[in-house]
Design a protein around this nucleic acid. Structure first.
Lengths: 342, 342
DNA sequence: GACAAACACTAAACCGTTTTAGTTTTACAA
DNA sequence: TTGTAAAACTAAAACGGTTTAGTGTTTGTC
């Protein structure tokens, strides 16, 4: 007769001269329910502790169909905004016994699909996704297959999903008003043309504010696909230098970075001629000269809400028709020297 | 007779009226070796494609003992330095069919152990670790158990491991010389007291340079464990304001951030009285006023080398006594306005 | 025409769990 | 003494693959 590996249920059963079933029941806390005697429970638990037994999670997953792994897919995991959320997600997930696979889709559909396909049929329990523009159908498929999905930061208007985000239009509207209140009259808005909700909403907010105040709409919409980082920067440079503007409002963090580089490269004083405002805050904006006013998203709160939703989806029976929840969090405006000139 | 699930090897075998063994051989590219006929290969492959079959990786892993998952454990995944490396690791890993579990140990031993224990006996194929100060034994155990481990950024002097890093002492020495060459004579060095190699080496490099030039050693060593972020910042503030210094050299990025905040908070011109140098580069240093001189570690190269080593360890037979490789990469100094005053 | 080698394929064990559908033992009532 | 219910435990199937140790069929050689 073959000796079973010690560190397995079989090994335990053999050693204690009982069946694997009993061991399994005890380990899964079903002892009472399955009428295992107290002495037996004691015996098993003691031995398990003695050999420091840990169940093989692969076997467990294979049998139960649950891998205890969730995917966290974002545009770019090295981006501070996403990395911060990832950090928090990680904490919550590990605490709840889940592991997290992080991945970056570069906001490209092909990459998103490739990744989703990689994980699909691969026993991943759920997805937290920052979706690229054209993967609505793929997301839809996941949902139809009853796989837990939570989107964040951006969504698909005609697809009902679980979602966590902020009210981009309102935040943007208020931020633009802030510029206007501080005397800026020719406000340029620099954004990208991915057509994604978060960007569209930010533009809408900007437009609403300038229109209401009879100011011109001055939008630079950069083609996301075309050109590299440097080429995009030249577009921004050209826009800043040649349009007649007194303030610039960047719709997202990496555009801000390009923009600030432009100012720095051209002349130290140039930036003081403009009001500067950006979506997404960063610690460095507090030490930049001038300090940069920013709209901050509640990163920690987003992470908590994302995991909240994910965990409750994971708990649900796979058949139960659930109503999808959209959670809209409050953003906050941090006015700094770049918009408040003394 | 029970119908096997279609999307399984069994289902395929049933449908094609052949054995699962044959299907498995074909799918694993062992067809030739196992003398499967070309028509059979054709038949299987065609059907597999038709139903878009993907093997269940859990089952595969359970049988083979390989999970195709590696752990990437760093101090803080939201830190730009680590996040950038993570991004690159991710790319290489997915390309090679591996998935990556990211986690942060906060440079604390308890957290490191907790995480390692979580993964140990849990079928993780390998670890890339940025180790906290006191987990030498845990690392040693992993290695003894023939589990692939690659350390980076810091190591344990008396434990031979696979490792990727830079020559911190030399980089620091050169950087300090750069300060000296630019006329700074009272150079303060701000670091933390974790006792880890990367920090010790950076201090050594600094000390060597100032000693060789008959300048005073002025080191502020902050207690890593004690106090929160704000309290540490006050220590830095006190040091900058009250020591008689003409240059400050920060040994790592988050100290730099605190330091720059101190300058900003105290007075706009204060920073111009000092030469500023930092370990670890960041895009924002190029737009800071003044631009900040920095020692840049080759993040992409580090990531590639880490994965290189990891992949070759994973390929090795678990018995084969391998010589552990230490890879030391070149760092580069980026002199900017904070050390070069016109 | 016998025999070995090469060829083409397969049955069944195995990985380590969970879970269903039991069986055996004990306790108690009639 | 028998019957029944509860208590305590277990055998075996299942999850979906991989792999070992085959089996039966051709082919080639003398």
């Amino acid at each position: 007769m073959k000796k079973a590996k010690k560190n397995s249920i079989k090994g335990i059963a053999e050693k204690l001269n009982i069946s694997v079933t009993t061991v399994s029941f005890v380990l899964n806390g079903k002892a009472k329910e399955k009428k295992i005697s107290d002495e037996m429970i004691e015996k098993v638990l003691a031995y398990v502790k003695e050999i420091n037994y840990k169940p093989n999670q692969l076997a467990q997953s294979l049998r139960t169909g649950k891998s205890k792994i969730i995917v966290f897919m974002v545009e770019d995991i090295s981006n501070y905004f996403f990395a911060s959320i990832a950090r928090k997600i990680e904490d919550i997930a590990y605490e709840k016994g889940y592991k997290v696979l992080f991945c970056s889709n570069e906001n490209k559909d092909a990459k998103s699909r490739e990744l989703i396909n990689l994980f699909k049929d691969r026993q991943v329990d759920g997805y937290i996704i920052n979706p690229s523009p054209g993967i609505k159908n793929d997301i839809e498929e996941l949902i139809e297959q009853d796989i837990p999905v939570v989107l964040f930061d951006r969504y698909f208007p005609d697809l009902e999903t679980n979602y966590v985000g902020i009210n981009n239009e309102e935040a943007s509207y208020k931020a633009t008003l802030h510029l206007i209140e501080n005397g800026f009259k020719k406000i340029g808005f620099i954004t990208i043309n991915t057509g994604q909700t978060q960007m569209l909403d930010r533009k809408k907010g900007y437009q609403k504010a300038v229109n209401e105040n009879n100011m011109p709409e001055k939008v630079l919409e950069i083609d996301f696909e075309a050109g590299n980082y440097l080429q995009q920067k030249e577009l921004i440079r050209n826009y800043i230098l040649n349009q007649d503007l007194d303030a610039i409002y960047f719709s997202t963090n990496y555009l801000t970075q390009s923009g600030l580089e432009v100012f720095k490269e051209n002349s130290p004083e140039l930036i003081d001629k403009f009001g500067i405002l950006t979506f997404d805050d960063h610690d460095f904006f507090k030490i930049h000269t001038p300090t940069i006013s920013a709209i901050a998203q509640p990163k920690n709160e987003m992470a908590s809400q994302l995991m909240n939703q994910m965990l409750s989806l994971l708990k649900k029976e796979s058949g139960s028709k659930d109503d999808k929840k959209q959670i809209i969090l409050e953003s906050s405006l941090h006015p700094r020297n770049s918009t408040i000139r003394k």
